[in-house]
Design a protein around this nucleic acid. Structure first.
Length: 467
RNA sequence: GUCCCCAUCGUCUAGCCUGGUCCAGGACACCGGCCUUUCACGCCGGCAACAGGGGUUCAAAUCCCCUUGGGGACGCCA
């Protein structure tokens, strides 16, 4: 069997969104799992809508997700001569012809067909006029007749009528640029693409492309059409939910491996397994596991997957990613040592890096300027708890060994002596140190803060309690 | 309008191809409980689905048909 080649061909008219990223992932996985190659090709034949910025954004998105390509990124706009060559071949063999109908005329034809209860299509009026090249003239493909059949990798055997699915569509614009269906077929053939996994929205393009392969005498690759992704409202994914750039997910604090794992499971399954390492994905992915019905994007599940990866991640790596999120909260230049110490405390407590930053921000506030939640202050930092906070400060200052275990022992011993329960001091101390009623363990926090900051925050609470 | 695709818990899915082991399994979410200095984590338990109707068959979530519901495509966009 010849070498497997897959591709991802986005058009640079928008960011790399969730749907595109999933398609890219499936193709990447398919190639990687079979010792094949993966091509990145930018489909920018529509010059008016394509921008270099979007091309860059797509490249950035692919890179962030770790979907590395072996060839490309190719730009279709660089390959016009190649398309022209194929178009000339089609004209010479009678499979294509020039047409000078205006867009208005074509619109009228469509209306007529529609009014007659048919599918709107070009009526072929220039088919037999034997027009030559001329300014503004498009080239149309002569649609074939008969049955178009292929074995879809996900949907199984497919059969459609060429008459129904294919009209004499334009393959070269009046301005000389090639159109989508022509360019894809030429490129896929030229690049040796063997397997095409793409969104279901391309299903109706498939007969057109197969017709082109046939007219050109090229071998037809394998097609697989995966269902679309819906938003939570059962409608097409839009800006409000997932259609935004994958880079938005980075900004929300998701790790790329979490996004990839989530995307993999959207429309693909392997028994009961939910979590996959990169290597497992590559080894296990196959078209067999692809589903046939549309999937809804579910942020809660993405967050759950994300929580898992944050828990598993190397703390040093997270510490490296966190400053950006802390900065958004007004924490500039967090102390590296303190940050490194705080990360493990929040790995089991956060679903995203952003949550992690929000949780740990209090560690980086100046001791004298820590903001306390007013309700927490009112409830726990009171005249009644002031002596306890005072005692806690002294215990911290005088602890022979400043480590969680011994510290806790010291507190317990003192509390026993006073006939007090641990609960009596826990919340007041927590509020004093973190400003809130919820946080990691008291002594773990103390270790992160260090003896001096801990004592300082406790004394400040004492002062606030008295005030 | 025409054509095409799809249909298992709220969501992602396993099972469907090769009918019986499925009064349908896992995960997320949700609800209880345990653990516990708070919040999490973790652990235990619970709720919850084969869209409807016809067939075929000894037997259907699994095969066939229809209905309904959802989605997509019909460009000198990709």
């Amino acid at each position: 069997m010849s070498k497997v080649v897959t591709r991802f061909p986005p058009s640079p008219t928008g960011f790399l969104h969730i749907g595109g990223a999933r398609t890219a992932l499936f193709n990447w996985l398919f190639a990687r799992g079979r010792g094949g190659e993966f091509v990145l090709r930018i489909e920018d034949t529509d010059q008016a809508r394509s921008t270099p910025e979007m091309t860059q954004a797509i490249v950035d998105g692919m890179t962030w997700l770790g979907l590395h390509w072996d060839h490309g990124p190719y730009l279709q706009s660089d390959r016009t001569p190649l398309y022209d060559q194929y178009i000339e071949r089609l004209i010479a063999s009678g499979h294509a012809y020039y047409c000078d109908c205006t867009p208005e005329q074509v619109d009228a034809m469509r209306e007529t067909a529609k009014a007659a209860g048919k599918k709107p299509k070009y009526d072929g009026s220039c088919r037999h006029r034997n027009l030559g090249p001329g300014p503004g003239r498009v080239v149309r493909f002569r649609a074939p007749e008969g049955l178009c059949a292929w074995a879809d990798m996900v949907k199984g055997p497919m059969e459609m009528d060429f008459e129904e699915m294919v009209d004499d569509f334009v393959i070269r614009r009046g301005n000389g640029s090639p159109m989508y269906n022509l360019a894809v077929v030429v490129d896929d053939a030229d690049m040796g693409v063997t397997h095409i996994i793409r969104g279901e929205d391309h299903l109706s393009n498939t007969p057109k492309q197969i017709a082109l392969y046939m007219a050109l005498g090229l071998s037809v690759p394998a097609f697989g059409h995966v269902p679309m992704i819906f938003g939570p409202d059962r409608k097409k994914l839009s800006k409000r939910h997932g259609a935004m750039s994958v880079m938005e997910y980075e900004a929300m604090g998701f790790l790329p491996e979490a996004v990839v794992n989530y995307l993999l499971r959207l429309g693909w399954g392997h028994g009961d397994q939910e979590l996959f390492t990169r290597q497992e994905m590559v080894e296990l992915f196959s078209e067999k596991g692809l589903g046939t019905s549309p999937a809804m994007f579910d942020m809660a599940k993405l967050e759950a997957v994300s929580a898992h990866y944050i828990k598993e991640a190397d703390p040093a790596r997270l510490a490296g990613l966190l400053p950006r999120f802390l900065a958004e909260l007004g924490v500039a230049d967090p102390d590296p040592a303190r940050l490194a110490a705080a990360v493990p405390l929040y790995q089991p407590r956060a679903k995203t890096l952003r949550e992690m930053a929000e949780g740990m921000a209090f560690f980086f506030a100046p001791d004298q300027a820590l903001e306390h939640d007013p309700a927490a202050l009112a409830k726990f930092v009171t005249a009644e708890s002031a002596p306890l906070l005072e005692a806690a400060a002294r215990l911290v200052e005088e602890a022979p060994v400043f480590e969680p275990g011994p510290l806790e022992e010291g507190f317990k011993t003192w509390l026993d002596g006073q006939g007090l329960k641990f609960k009596a001091v826990a919340q007041p101390v927590r509020v004093a140190l973190s400003g809130r009623t919820f946080s990691p363990g008291l002594f773990e926090m103390m270790l992160v803060l260090g003896r001096e900051s801990t004592a300082c925050r406790l004394r400040r609470a004492v002062a606030l309690a008295g005030a």
